[in-house]
C-alpha cells in the first residue's frame, strides 16, 4: 500500500477538532445565559460578563487540549492507518469534550441551586427566620454568585 506523509492526517485533524470546539462552546454558552440570569438574579451586565469569562475559559482549555494531543508518532501513514489513527483521536477528543460539557452543566445547575438557597436565606433573615449555615466546599466555577 502506498504511504503518505503524516502531515495530511494533521491537516484533516485540525479543522475537525477546532470546528468541534467552536460548535460545542457556542451551543453550551448560548443556552447558559438562561442560567446566568437566574444565578445573578436578572442582573444582565454581570451575567453577560460571567458567561463571557466562562466561555473564554472553555475555549482555552479545549483548544489547548486539542492542539496538545495533535502529535502522531509516525512518519508515514497508509490510507488504512490514517483512518484508524484519526478516528481514535477525534473520537477520544469528542468524549473529552462531552465530559467537559457535562461538567460545565453540573456547575450551572449547582450555581443555580446555591443562588436560590442564598435568596431564600436573604428572605428568611428579613422576616426574622433562622439563619442557615453558609454552604461549604463549592466547586470554583459555580461560585460566582453574588449575594444580592
Amino acid at each position: 500500500m502506498s504511504q503518505v506523509s503524516v502531515l495530511w492526517a494533521y491537516v484533516i485533524y485540525l479543522p475537525i477538532a477546532i470546528w468541534l470546539t467552536l460548535y460545542v462552546t457556542g451551543k453550551l454558552f448560548d443556552n447558559a445565559m438562561v442560567y446566568m440570569m437566574d444565578i445573578f438574579h436578572g442582573r444582565k451586565e454581570i451575567a453577560v460578563a460571567t458567561n463571557q469569562l466562562f466561555k473564554i475559559g472553555f475555549y482555552l482549555i479545549n483548544m489547548g487540549f486539542a492542539l496538545y494531543i495533535l502529535r502522531i508518532n509516525r512518519d508515514m501513514l497508509t490510507a488504512q492507518s490514517t483512518f484508524e489513527v484519526l478516528s481514535m483521536k477525534i473520537g477520544g477528543f469528542s468524549i473529552y469534550l462531552g465530559g467537559m460539557l457535562l461538567m460545565n452543566l453540573f456547575f450551572f445547575f449547582r450555581g443555580k441551586k446555591v443562588a436560590g438557597r442564598a435568596a431564600d436565606k436573604g428572605n428568611n433573615a428579613k422576616s426574622g427566620g433562622t439563619i442557615q449555615p453558609a454552604p461549604v466546599s463549592l466547586p470554583p466555577a459555580a461560585d460566582l454568585n453574588l449575594n444580592a
Binding site: Y10, G64, A66
Partner: peptide
C-alpha cells in the same frame, strides 16, 4: 514543524486556561 508548533501552542493555551480559572 506542525506537531511541535501545535504542542507548544497547546501547552501555552492550557497554561492560560489554568491561570484564568
Amino acid at each position: 514543524l506542525m506537531s511541535v508548533l501545535c504542542r507548544w501552542i497547546g501547552r501555552l493555551v492550557l497554561i492560560l486556561a489554568v491561570l484564568h480559572y
